[in-house]
Design a protein around this nucleic acid. Structure first.
Length: 427
RNA sequence: GGAGGGAUGGGUGAGUGGUUGAAACCGGCGGUCUUGAAAACCGUUAGCCCCGAAAGGGGCUCGGGGGUUCGAAUCCCUCUCCCUCCGCCA
């Protein structure tokens, strides 16, 4: 959420930044409502001041056993006026809030301006895509033929966009989670946290999924519980309504969770394979940072995510998303895209964002410098470190052999009891 | 699921309709004392919003929402969360 006072004083800037994002004018008659709100507020508050004063007088008169009926009569009339103006002010307040809560974050000045992903800017590449001397297969053929992946039975027991893993496939999924968590906790200084997979709606407001993106989420019937679309949601909300010591920042968390997404509106996209599932696993990185350090932390978080792919020997590139491709809460985002031989292109496997104070303001997460002074909103960052399902399929595709087997990257072998290869079943 | 008890400022915890935005204690900050520190003593110590160039003034907030009343931390309704006991349970 943007700051009300900031929007009031920077209407033109906000309009320009939003148009760079390619969103329609969400500000509407913000100015008029804001002015109206303050007008009713003043009407109500001046009457409340009068009420407080006369109430004291009534108390004093009663104490002296004197008659206060004239004052009480005046207060009755004043009371209904106050109700009226309070109501008007509250109505404006709600309208304003409705507007503010649906406005996305403003892009940082370093974000490439552009309407779509076509204007995303490649920052760097790591690794060389492997040259195959045979026709590489897509993972949705490799997996089933290795007997480790099953879409058919998943469709039976759940539906489309679900998968079942067997044997070394299941174990590989588990190994990847452990590998990533170990890397981030031992080498990158993140604290591991295991949060609930279900959260309440206030939590989803805090990170910006609600109220605008309810259709992307799974909601439980008969309860205010939603399945998390990413660990960013519970972990960022860890400090909702809290004030942290500036000395403790940055605070770095990593979390392994399942993620659930309805994928409404993506019908027909990535229908084959594991790329787009209703349920997938992810190791997420979340940081709480001082405003002046958050962009440095975004760079290091992007490197931390990249380290996962480098240790696994998966070629990838880093892309700065353009203003039009930015997520709702983000001021700046780097995507990590892994090389997929079957597609012949780089595909998103991680997304690292600096949300600045946008989420902190919604979730009321603040810090205080030197234990005194005014509490300020901190900056929140989140990034995949990285998506496990997509890493799983990237390993299959990038490490496949002509005989249909898949070599296990060395860094992962300790997590798979030394297994160095997944081979097709012999019988 | 059944029966009770709670939610007050950074913390503990008073307060049951009218100088209570809130006692007291602890903690924090400033000061006195001290070579320094501790102890002791004194002072100070919530947030948000509105008006204002500022100084300053005003409003709201005692878990959330609604109600009663001239006036609510205090009374009523409701929701959420926490605790205790019983039952069930991975």
């Amino acid at each position: 959420m943007l700051d009300l006072g900031f929007v009031r004083e920077n209407l033109d800037l906000v309009r320009r930044k939003l148009s760079e994002r390619g969103v329609p004018d969400l500000l509407g008659d913000f100015e008029a409502i804001d002015r109206e709100r303050r007008r009713w507020l003043m009407e109500a508050e001046s009457r409340k001041a009068r009420r407080n004063k006369v109430s004291d007088e009534i108390a004093a008169l009663k104490k002296q056993k004197q008659d206060a009926s004239a004052q009480i009569a005046e207060m009755k009339a004043l009371g209904s006026e106050i109700d009226e103006f309070d109501q008007k002010a509250k109505a404006c307040d709600e309208k304003l809030h409705e507007v503010l809560v649906r406005i996305p974050n403003l892009p940082h000045e370093t974000v490439p301006v552009g309407a779509t992903a076509a204007q995303n800017q490649e920052i760097r590449r790591w690794g060389e895509p492997r040259q195959f001397d045979f026709q590489p297969k897509p993972h949705w053929e490799l997996g089933p033929s290795l007997g480790i992946l099953d879409f058919d039975r998943a469709a039976k027991i759940s539906g489309a966009r679900f998968a079942i893993y067997y044997d070394l496939g299941a174990k590989l999924e588990r190994a990847l989670a452990n590998f990533m968590l170990d890397l981030h906790t031992r080498q990158h200084g993140y604290r591991e946290v295991f949060p609930p997979f279900m959260v309440n709606s206030a939590t989803l407001y805090g990170t910006g999924q609600l109220p605008k993106f309810a259709e992307d989420l799974f909601k439980l019937e008969g309860a205010d519980y939603w399945l998390i679309p990413t660990a960013e949601v519970p972990v960022t909300n860890l400090y909702r309504d809290e004030v942290l010591d500036a000395e403790k920042l940055p605070i770095k968390y990593c979390a392994w969770t399942a993620c659930f997404r309805s994928e409404a509106g993506s019908y027909g996209r990535d229908t084959r394979g594991l790329i787009r599932q209703h349920q997938f696993q992810k190791v997420e990185l979340v940081k709480f940072a001082l405003p002046e350090q958050s962009y440095g932390e975004l760079e290091s978080m992007t490197r931390d995510a990249g380290a996962v792919l480098e240790k696994l020997g998966l070629p990838y590139r880093v892309v700065a998303l353009s203003t039009g491709d930015l997520g709702f809460s983000s001021a700046k985002t780097y995507d990590l895209e892994v090389w997929l031989p079957s597609a012949g292109e780089y595909k998103e496997i991680s997304s690292c964002s600096n949300c600045e104070a946008f989420q902190a303001r919604r979730a009321n997460i603040r810090f205080r410098r030197g234990g005194k002074g005014k509490a300020e909103f901190l900056h929140t960052l989140n990034g995949s470190g990285v998506a496990i399902g997509r890493t799983w399929l990237a390993i299959l595709e990038n490490y496949q052999q002509e005989d249909g087997s898949v070599v296990i990257p060395e860094a992962l072998r300790p997590y798979l009891d030394g297994v160095d290869k997944i081979s097709p079943p012999t019988h």
